[in-house]
Amino acid sequence: MQFKLIINGKTLKGEITLEAVDAAEAEKKFKQYANDNGIDGEWTYDDATKTFTVTE
C-alpha cells in the first residue's frame, strides 16, 4: 500500500510517499525519516487517505 507524509516543519515543508505493508510500518519509516531530518512535532494519521501529517 502507498502512504503519504505531509511535513509542516519550521524549516522543512513538503510531502513524501512510500510503500509499506501497513500503517504501522509506514509510521515507523516516516518517523525515522523525520528523526533523520531533525523534524519533531505533533503527528496525526488519516486512515481514509493513508496520510500522516507532522507539524512542528
Rank of each mutant, 00 (worst) to 15 (best):
L12H: 11
M1L: 11
A20D: 07
G9Q: 08
K50M: 08
D40S: 10
V54K: 01
D40F: 12
T49C: 04
I7E: 01
L18W: 14
L5T: 01
A34G: 08
K10G: 08
Y33E: 02
D47L: 08
T44F: 11
G38P: 02
K13S: 06
E15Q: 08
G14V: 12
T11S: 09
L5Y: 01
E15N: 14
A23Q: 14
A20V: 06
T49P: 02
A24D: 07
T49K: 09
W43P: 01
G41C: 02
T55A: 09
E19A: 08
D36C: 08
K50R: 09
F3L: 01
G9T: 14
A20M: 05
G38R: 11
A48G: 09
T55I: 10
D46W: 07
N37A: 14
Q2E: 04
I7P: 01
E42L: 10
E15L: 12
E27G: 07
V54Q: 01
K29F: 09
T53Q: 06
K31G: 03
G14W: 07
A20S: 07
N8D: 04
K29G: 10
I16F: 09
E56T: 06
A24C: 11
L12K: 10
A24V: 06
T17C: 03
N35F: 10
G38H: 06
A23N: 14
A26V: 03
L18P: 01
T49M: 09
G38S: 08
L5S: 01
K10C: 06
E15D: 11
K31V: 15
K29Q: 08
D36M: 14
M1A: 06
T17L: 14
K28Q: 15
K29W: 09
K13D: 05
F52P: 00
E15C: 07
T51E: 08
I6C: 04
D47F: 09
A26G: 03
E27F: 13
D47M: 12
V21C: 06
L18D: 04
F30S: 03
D47R: 04
I6F: 13
L12G: 07
D36S: 10
T17I: 09
D36G: 09
A26N: 00
D22Y: 14
E27R: 09
Y33I: 07
I39L: 09
D47W: 07
A24Y: 09
D46Y: 12
T17H: 14
T53V: 08
E19W: 09
T17K: 07
T44D: 09
K28M: 13
E15I: 06
L18R: 06
Q32D: 07
L18C: 04
A26I: 02
K29H: 11
G41D: 01
T51Y: 04
E27P: 00
A34K: 01
E15K: 07
A24S: 13
T49R: 15
L12P: 06
F30H: 01
Q2F: 13
G38I: 05
I6D: 02
T17F: 14
F52W: 08
E56S: 13
L18F: 13
D46M: 08
Q32T: 07
I16G: 02
A20T: 09
M1N: 15
F3E: 00
I7Y: 07
I16S: 06
I6P: 00
G41Y: 02
E19H: 10
A24T: 15
D40T: 05
G14S: 12
G14P: 04
A26C: 03
K31C: 03
D22S: 14
